[in-house]
Structures are given as structure tokens and as C-alpha cells.
């Protein structure tokens, strides 16, 4: 009756699939609309560096055949679509013959891990701290700390990353300069390895966190202040309920929904911030991968990683959408 209904879930999933179809199509269209042809460009460049190559036109044509670029555009599109949904992205031009999916396979876990942990910390701690700041019973001296939580919010995460890197890694030497784990430790579920992953991930997480958590804190504080004046909170006080119980079940519970919405809205920014932070820390994730691919003009990799970023964003938004009705029973109401 309440909470998550099938109709609601199917509706959201439908929108999700449509988003993905549109993004695949866009990537296809954009890549064909780019002037020039990556294969031809590559060989012409080679020619310029090494001098005349014999039969270059034949070679180019052969590669075009190989990558299916000579087929009608419609067939190309359908093939592209079919390959993309199977995560079959072909091979890297630059790191030939490594397959793009295996490159993504290595990078994806790091990105997901980093992103998930930062997002969870931002959401849980940001909202927790915001609720404390907004609560009428919090002592004044604690509330005056607020501005300090906002010092970093006005700078981009790249700068925060550079700042942290130069102080804590370069000058103090407390944290490593690059990478995601200590390569001298055997990988797997053992403590030294996990500890090194935490140590290597600490500064990247921190640089995204510092920049983004302030907004969550501010948003939550505002929501808690507003809802604190609502009739139902006043009635809860009239009932003689304990203040902390009221904060939890009446105020924060109702403040979380808009906070979840703003999280969904900020995901895109979080992810693009992470791309830059990863490349600054040489963190072997998707951000690093796309950054390198752009520099190397590795076409297939650029396309595949862009698609993966869209997929990650859309999936996160879908998950949040499916969470809504569990928090607020009114969400599914209009649907049935």
C-alpha cells in the first residue's frame, strides 16, 4: 500500500533506461560529428613523423573495414548500441590490443569505492552535523563553529587536492604522493593491504569531502530550523516527548527527503570533481583513465569512459529515486 510500489519502481526504471539510450545515442552522434577521422588522423600523423608510408590509403581502408566504419550509418549505430549494452567497447587505439573493457574493469572498482565512501560520508556526517547546528537545543558556542565548515566550500576540489597534496604528502610526508595502494603488499583481504588502501585513499576522499560537505551541512541546518517551527513539531513537544526523539523522528526524518533530492542533484558535480581529484593523485580510477585517454586521444577509451560516467550517475540517481518512498510515504501517492 505504501512505500515502494511496483508501478513507481517500473516508472523510474523506464526513465533510467531511456536516459541511457539517449546518452548512448548522443555519444555516437557526437563522435561521428567530430571533424576528421581518428584512424586517418593517426596514420597521417605517423606519416608526418616517419616519412612516406607505402600503401597508407590501403592500410587506412583496412582499419576502417576492421572497425566497421565503412558500413551504413544505421548499421553502425545498431552495432554500437548492441556492443555498448554488452560493455563491449573494442580495443584501445593507443594501448593496442588491450580491450577497453578490461581497462575499465581495472579502474571502475577504485572509482566506485572512492565515490561511494565520499558520498556516504558527506551524506551521513553532513546531515548529522547540519542537524546539530540547526537544532534549537544545541549550545550557542557550537553553533558558531558553522562558518569554519564552509571555508573550503567556495574553492574547487582541484585546488583542495593540490593544497592537501603539497602539505601532507610533499612537505610532511604523512601520505603517499600517488596511487591507490602500496604495491609492495600482496593484494587481497589482508590487513596491510586494506590499511594501505585507506592510507592512499585518505587525501583524495578528504579533498572531495571538504569542498562538498559544507553545502550538505548548510542545507540540513536550514531544513531543521524550518521544520523545527512546523505545527507537528510543536504538537510533538506538547505531547511531552523527549527532545532528542523529536529531533530524530519528527524533524530530521522530514528534513532528509529534500536533502536526498539535493544529493541526487549534486551527484554530477561530485563525479566530475572526482575525475580531477583522481588525476591529481594519480589514482588509478575512471577519472584518471579518461584524463589520460583525452591526452592521448584514445578515442574508444574516451567514448567508453564517458558512457560509464553517465551510467554511474544515472544508476545513482535511480537508487536515490527508489529510496525516496521508503523515507517519505507521500512520494508514491500520486502514482496509484
Amino acid at each position: 500500500m505504501n512505500g515502494l510500489t511496483w508501478k513507481y519502481a517500473l516508472h523510474r526504471i523506464g526513465i533510467y533506461l531511456l536516459t541511457i539510450l539517449i546518452s548512448i545515442t548522443l555519444i555516437f552522434v557526437i563522435s561521428r560529428a567530430v571533424p576528421g577521422d581518428p584512424i586517418e588522423n593517426m596514420w597521417r600523423q605517423l606519416e608526418m613523423q616517419k616519412g612516406q608510408i607505402e600503401g597508407v590509403d590501403l592500410i587506412i581502408d583496412h582499419y576502417k573495414e576492421l572497425f566497421g566504419l565503412n558500413e551504413p550509418i544505421g548499421i553502425q549505430y545498431l552495432k554500437y548500441l548492441w556492443n555498448t549494452v554488452r560493455f563491449e567497447f573494442g580495443v584501445s587505439f593507443v594501448h593496442y590490443p588491450t580491450s577497453v573493457s578490461s581497462m575499465i574493469g581495472h579502474a571502475l572498482p577504485w572509482t566506485l569505492g572512492l565515490g561511494l565512501i565520499t558520498t556516504l560520508i558527506i551524506f551521513i556526517f553532513g546531515n548529522g552535523i547540519g542537524a546539530v547546528f540547526g537544532w534549537e537545543r544545541t549550545p550557542k558556542f557550537i553553533k558558531t563553529i558553522i562558518p569554519s565548515s564552509l571555508i573550503f566550500t567556495s574553492i574547487p576540489s582541484v585546488l583542495a587536492a593540490l593544497f592537501l597534496l603539497s602539505i601532507f604528502s610533499k612537505n610532511l610526508g604523512w601520505f603517499p604522493l600517488a596511487g591507490a595502494y602500496n604495491s609492495n603488499v600482496t593484494q587481497g583481504w589482508n590487513w596491510p593491504y586494506i590499511a594501505s588502501v585507506i592510507k592512499y585513499g585518505f587525501l583524495p576522499v578528504l579533498s572531495i569531502l571538504l569542498v562538498n560537505i559544507g553545502w550538505t551541512i548548510l542545507g540540513m541546518r536550514a531544513m531543521v530550523v524550518t521544520i523545527g517551527g512546523a505545527d507537528y513539531v510543536r504538537l510533538a513537544q506538547a505531547k511531552g516527548l523527549k527532545p532528542f526523539y523529536i529531533l530524530k523522528k519528527y524533524t530530521v526524518r522530514n528534513a532528509l527527503l529534500p536533502q536526498l533530492t539535493s544529493l541526487a542533484l549534486s551527484l554530477g558535480g561530485l563525479i566530475s570533481g572526482q575525475v580531477l581529484v583522481e588525476s591529481i593523485f594519480s589514482y588509478p580510477g575512471m577519472g584518471m583513465l579518461i584524463f589520460r585517454a583525452i591526452r592521448e586521444q584514445d578515442f574508444n577509451v574516451i567514448q567508453a569512459t564517458s558512457y560509464m560516467f553517465i551510467l554511474i550517475t544515472a544508476t545513482s540517481v535511480l537508487l536515490i529515486d527508489l529510496l525516496y518512498p521508503l523515507i517519505d510515504p507521500r512520494i508514491t501517492h500520486g502514482e496509484d
Binding site: 512546523a230 505545527d231 507537528y232 504538537l235 506538547a238 511531552g240 523522528k249
Partner: peptide
């Protein structure tokens, strides 16, 4: 409160917690 003094608020449209 509530044992001796109970309240029925003005504009009770918003007197109930929407998430409970």
C-alpha cells in the same frame, strides 16, 4: 504535558507528522 494538558492545534492540517 499530555497527561494533564493536551493540545489540539490551530490549522490541524499540518499537525501530524507526514512521515509517521
Amino acid at each position: 504535558r499530555w497527561t494533564e494538558l493536551a493540545l489540539i492545534t490551530q490549522g490541524s492540517m499540518n499537525s501530524l507528522n507526514p512521515t509517521m
